[in-house]
């Protein structure tokens, strides 16, 4: 019991500590990076339980802001290999369990 309680506490701790967005890989310009990151955070918080909607929201907003052909992947576990236009890719972790990849390729 004590162990599980501790585990839960740890988990909560982890969640609390790891809620910040963590950019793993990006080649975007600084301004664009910040904007995209904020957008991802907003979308993931808004649709905390529905990754698909979050991805859709990010994609549509990005299309609107930076022009067409954006692609978004959100998930807890996936592998990807993409070709993207240079200076248009961002790969980040969020909320301790989500990975978000946003890139552009027409």
């Amino acid at each position: 019991m004590a162990g599980t309680g501790e585990g839960k506490k740890e988990e909560a701790d982890y969640k609390r500590l790891h809620c910040f967005p963590l950019i793993r890989e990006t080649d975007m310009p600084e301004e664009m990076k910040v904007e995209t990151m904020e957008l991802c955070v907003t979308a993931c918080e808004k649709f905390a339980t529905n990754n698909e909607s979050a991805a859709k929201m990010i994609k549509e907003s990005m299309d609107k802001k930076f022009g067409s052909s954006w692609h978004v992947v959100i998930g807890e576990g996936f592998g990807l290999e993409v070709t993207h236009e240079v200076k248009n890719m961002l790969y980040m972790f969020f909320g301790g369990s989500l990975a978000v990849c946003v890139w552009r390729c027409s």
């Binding site: 793993r24 890989e25 080649d27 998930g75 807890e76 576990g77 996936f78 592998g79 990807l80 290999e81 993409v82 070709t83 993207h84 236009e85 240079v86 890719m89 790969y91 972790f93 369990s97 990975a99 990849c101 890139w103 390729c105």
Partner: peptide, 12 residues
């Protein structure tokens, strides 16, 4: 426009 490849693996 110039392109590049990116690959990664995400899991917990």
């Amino acid at each position: 426009p110039p392109r590049s490849n990116f690959s990664s693996l995400a899991n917990q």
